[in-house]
């Protein structure tokens, strides 16, 4: 069997048999369940807290659109934060712990190691997001009695492109920065820059910076012009980041 396939199987098994199978799934399931509930009860909570201070302001009743907006917002902020921190050591953990030495002194190329990690964890992320979407769809239907699939899927899929971009960004940073905490810090810095960058229209139109806003808009059934630009640029950037990570890792001394 090909060494790359064997290593990919190891990566998949490692996800299933270590803390990785608990942390990200737990976070995403929490958001999947809490998003519709939070959306449903937010107006009542605000009314209860605000009381007479709201005066003549009337809060509209929540709908499934609010549940979907809450879901994509959670994915785009807290979940991305967790993802960045968790994947800070996606490559460097193998080198710092010494496990890479036993793997890379066998017929397994360094480039393949990096690529396998990026691909396996992107697939894992996709599976998590799909399961999370199904859960949030079910809870939304139960809470609101109405939960059309299209806005949820389109918003989530656009977010998934952003998620894959961040997995590859962390793969790259984990090769460049030897410590997991350092790479996570650099990842959070990139996240802040992209979030601020989204305010500048040209950057939002042609970079991953514009994806979070577009995902939220799609989930809220709002028109989203120019979706292809940031999606294609993000996918190309993801590929470029993996290639760059592989090239840098080949030059590294272990």
């Amino acid at each position: 069997m090909n060494a790359t396939v064997v290593f990919a199987r190891k990566e998949a098994l490692e996800i299933v048999r270590t803390w990785r199978i608990v942390v990200l799934p737990a976070i995403i399931l929490f958001f999947a369940v809490s998003a519709p509930l939070l959306a449903r009860f937010t107006p009542e909570i605000v009314r209860a807290v605000g009381g007479d201070q709201l005066g003549a302001i009337t809060l509209p009743d929540a709908t499934y659109v609010d549940a979907y907006a809450q879901w994509t917002q959670s994915l785009g902020q807290t979940f991305l934060f967790a993802l960045i921190i968790i994947y800070g050591g996606i490559v460097s953990f193998e080198t710092s712990s010494g496990t890479a030495i036993l793997v890379l002194t066998k017929p397994m190329s360094r480039g393949a190691l990096v690529a396998v990690k990026a691909v396996t964890h992107s697939v894992f992320l996709a599976a998590l997001v799909i399961i999370g979407s199904l859960v949030t769809w079910g809870v939304t239907a139960a809470v609101f009695g109405q939960a059309p699939l299209e806005p949820l899927w389109s918003g989530t899929l656009v977010w998934l492109v952003l998620g894959v971009f961040y997995v590859t960004l962390m793969t790259f940073l984990s090769v460049v920065v030897p410590s997991a905490a350092g790479a996570a810090g650099a990842g959070i810095g990139s996240f802040v820059l992209l979030t601020i960058g989204a305010l500048w229209r040209p950057l939002a139109d042609y970079s991953p910076a514009g994806l979070a806003g577009r995902a939220a808009a799609l989930a809220a059934e709002q028109p989203v012009p120019g979706l292809l630009g940031p999606v294609l640029v993000s996918l190309a950037a993801a590929v470029a980041l993996v290639v760059a990570a592989a090239v840098l890792f080949r030059r590294k001394e272990l």
């Binding site: 069997m1 190891k10 490692e14 270590t18 496990t99």
Partner: peptide
């Protein structure tokens, strides 16, 4: 030598052998 702590010894040897095809 550093190993994947979640594997058993037979699993690691099969993994190592697999890397050699």
């Amino acid at each position: 030598p550093a190993f994947y702590g979640w594997m058993t010894a037979p699993e690691f040897l099969r993994f190592a052998g697999g890397l050699f095809g």
